[in-house]
Amino acid sequence: MKIFITSKGRELDSKVDPRFGRAEYYIIYDTETAEFRAEENPFKKGQTAVGISLAQRVIEEGAQVAISGNFGPNAFEVLKAAEIRLFRAGGEMKVKEAVDAFLRGELPEMDSATPREVADRLEKELK
């Protein structure tokens, strides 16, 4: 299985980049071979819709799982439509630590209850 992780550097020792669309790099980690490859995020300096652009890249890379600090609302929607599972790596986690935590089932999964939906629900309750 291929995992897509946003990263601040090119190594497994690099920290997870908490920004999704504007992450510095991304790392593709293959859980079967334990091999990895780092790429510079070509969209990090983009004008608009960087989240959507990188989400499309996740699909093209054939990853089944994506790990980052935050997923913007649009990136979230694209990745969910492509049936990719999303996990949040908080704090100052390194890429390798995040992968290990994911494999141990310790990373929180971002499911359909996104903060936006929680917000919408609250709004309805207010009215």
């Binding site: 935050n70 913007g72 996104t114 903060p115 936006r116 929680v118 917000a119």
Partner: peptide
């Protein structure tokens, strides 16, 4: 506020 909430 909604935007801030969304990003946690």
């Amino acid at each position: 506020v909604e935007t801030a909430e969304h990003f946690g």
